[in-house]
Design a protein around this nucleic acid. Structure first.
Lengths: 246, 246
DNA sequence: CCGCTCAATTGGTAACACCTTTCAGTGAGG
DNA sequence: CCTCACTGAAAGGTGTTACCAATTGAGCGG
């Protein structure tokens, strides 16, 4: 439970010192163990992780650039409130998904997906290359038997690839930059058991509909199919008490 | 050699050394002056900016965490391709908006707005507090006379506040985190002369419609009005390559 | 063609001077 | 006795230098 730092021991040499202390601190802050207003100092970081001042400082700088802390003279390194975190930073997302706030994080990211992916599908229908269109159809058709057989893991892999491909093929870098996020959401959802035992048939149909619409450059259809697919996704998530009801 | 620190420079004392070198390097990379594959070393950075190794290193770490460079032993600090940049990092966005790619950046961000803001409006219609609803209506009604008079700057200020408020009131932190981006887009658009001399009447109507729908908790209407408003925005953008300069 | 050595460059440590900011203590005045 | 302003010292980040270790690409020699 206590984090012993594997210093110099054979296996885990690779990751630079920064990485381990950054991850530890990042996790502790995002998970609330180090709550807002808590003050650290470089000295305590040095001592706690047994690293040099340089490493402590560079780590602090990284945390600061992610909005997790602020460093001020004479006072130290203060943990900042949630509102100032850089929530699009991949590492921040990762930390939050790994911590206790995972569920709510998954929900806000899903809402983001609902916003972005339909437009990305429409854009992909306009801009995708021939190979990408073909691959999409291939993926969607391959998903059906896996889904019907309830083989969730390989199904999930294809699902991730399909959604990532749509985002990348959209031609908008802001959309494309969300591939990792979407992948994390999709993976996290199954790992967390938020998925039904096997995908509902509509989901299979809709994946196919999206792929075909993109392949045929029917951008309006692609957008609508993706929208339906995602509202399906939202409804399938375990409720948090929201009536929903579109 | 002898370090006469130019520390006493009158005006710009505040910003730490990092800031200036980080901004310079960040701008040069995002603008393409330092193209992909270009290799820097800590020594050259030290020399060029007359800073210590510590500052050079910490700056490099920041650039690395933004995906702009990668640092490897024996080889140096290599500029990474556009695809690996953290395009949601506020500073990266800022650099790109300040550089020659401003126009295309503005376009991809606008597409992101089109995706996100309608959903944010719908969410705001559900979750906003009473004060927020009132403020929205207030803003929208105040915008009309300014718009009709062609007073673009104050109009723009209210516009920024309205859109920011919607995003914040949505209750989704991923949406809320885009306020700065949206503000930058709105401001950049007028500064760049991409706006018509005075807002079209439909825009004024739609702002009001959004505000009223949110205030009345009509989430479907709010979403639709925001969608119309943004498609208006997209259509109003001067097509690629148009001369700016108002 | 392969392996060896060398040198370049980052990774990491240590010690230091300096500057800013805070806070406690002190004294005067009400 | 209480309050407020000043003052001075300490705390802690900022920035610098020097140094060694680890890594690895490149050239050289067999």
């Amino acid at each position: 439970m206590n984090s012993e730092h594997n210093r110099g021991n054979g296996t885990g040499n690779g990751e630079s010192k920064h990485h381990s202390v950054l991850d530890t601190l990042g996790l502790e802050i995002t998970s609330g163990v180090l709550e807002e207003g808590r003050v650290l100092t470089l000295d305590t970081i040095q001592e706690r992780f047994d690293v040099s001042r340089t490493v402590a400082r560079e780590t602090m700088r990284l945390l600061e650039s992610k909005g997790l802390v602020v460093s001020r003279r004479r006072v130290g390194i203060t943990v900042r409130p949630t509102a100032s975190w850089q929530v699009y930073d991949p590492r921040v997302i990762w930390w939050r998904l790994a911590g206790p706030g995972r569920d709510s994080q998954l929900r806000s990211l899903t809402e983001l997906r609902i916003a972005v992916e339909p437009l990305a599908a429409a854009a992909a229908a306009r801009h995708a290359g021939a190979a990408e269109r073909a691959r999409l159809v291939e993926l969607a058709t391959a998903m059906r038997p896996l889904g019907e057989a309830g083989r969730l893991d390989p199904f999930n892999d294809l699902d991730v690839e399909l959604h990532s491909l749509v985002l990348r093929a959209s031609g908008n870098e802001m959309f494309a930059a969300l591939t990792d996020v979407v992948a994390a959401v999709l993976r996290g959802r199954t790992q967390l058991g938020l998925m039904p035992d096997r995908p509902v048939p509509e989901a299979l149909d809709l994946h196919e509909a999206v792929a075909l619409a993109v392949a045929d450059a029917r951008h309006q259809d692609a957008e609508e199919a993706m929208r339906l697919l995602l509202s399906e996704v939202r409804d399938a998530m375990v409720p948090l008490g929201a009536p929903g009801g579109r």
